[in-house]
Design a protein around this nucleic acid. Structure first.
Lengths: 162, 162
DNA sequence: TGCTATTGTAACTAGAATTGTTACAAATGA
DNA sequence: TCATTTGTAACAATTCTAGTTACAATAGCA
């Protein structure tokens, strides 16, 4: 994958959608939970939409929702939708072609990378968004999705009561 | 791992040592094969030395060599010696603690990360530096380790003839 | 028909990480 | 003593990530 948090944020967002009772969640609501900027969320939602994991709608009553049942979305789907970097990189500059090791280490490293990729994919394919929801620790608090700026007891017609 | 090429370079360097007949290889020779700067190599060799994978010596006849047989050094050893980044990162800013999902998604993601780590480690533990050497395509050329600036037919008393 | 809220997206900034480079003290053997 | 090499600090160049602002397009609603 990479050192970025794109995968983690995507899982977070999809888990929120699976967990919430609301039909659509606004990028603003998702951003509050993730603790980031709504544009960062919207950028990610566009990538998830391209892979048909979420459906977004513009307009005053718009927002985003899962495109499938949570138990039909695996973390491998998420991984493929948002992760661009390889598990590890080869050296940016080509090794010395006149060195027997330098000239043929590349394909060997790529074989290793493929083996790692397969192992990762096997793990991720076995975990669904539904699984993630079930693994969440039950909270003693009344579940809700806050709107930016709203507090617990404030008027909160956007809260998602499960 | 990360998006860096540290792991790939480390494997390259250790493979060169295992493959070469020379007692010690200079950072300069290694740098030529990797196609990078000798200081980059030396920095990496220091990390490998800390984990007892290589032994380096200063001085005019110095250089670095493997600390063990190539079949006793696994890619997992290399991975642990040079790789610092996690497989994937959580979001840099803590999620909203007042959101049931935000407050408990972290440990779930860490569980996933642990599962991935175990899968990667299983793959890497099964591959030794010796295996990497054996996977190299046999070169029709006479094996050598070039010195910086030297060409094939030039005087090359530093070449490693296997 | 306008009004309002929301998405999609471009453009830019700030900060961090990676790699490359120069420089030099310390070590080692000849 | 001298040449060579490592170890290491300091810094530059480049790239990547995340954050931010801005705004056109969209869609529901009074």
């Amino acid at each position: 994958m990479s050192t970025s948090s794109r995968f983690a944020v995507a899982v977070h967002v999809l888990t929120l959608m699976a967990w919430s009772d609301e039909e659509c969640l606004k990028s603003d609501q998702l951003a509050v939970s993730v603790n980031t900027n709504p544009v960062v969320i919207r950028r990610m939602l566009c990538e998830l939409a391209e892979d048909n994991l979420v459906i977004s709608q513009t307009g005053s009553t718009g927002g985003s929702r899962l495109a499938n049942d949570p138990d039909r979305i695996t973390l491998l789907d998420v991984y493929r939708a948002v992760e661009t970097a390889e598990v590890f990189s080869l050296h940016p500059k080509r090794p010395d072609r006149d060195c027997p090791v330098g000239s043929s280490i590349g394909p060997v490293l790529e074989e290793v990378r493929t083996e790692i990729d397969l192992a990762i994919e096997h793990v991720l394919a076995g975990i669904t968004i539904r699984d993630v929801v079930l693994r969440l620790k039950p909270s003693g608090r009344r579940p809700e999705v806050k709107k930016r700026g709203s507090r617990d007891s404030a008027n909160n017609k956007a809260s998602a009561v499960v």
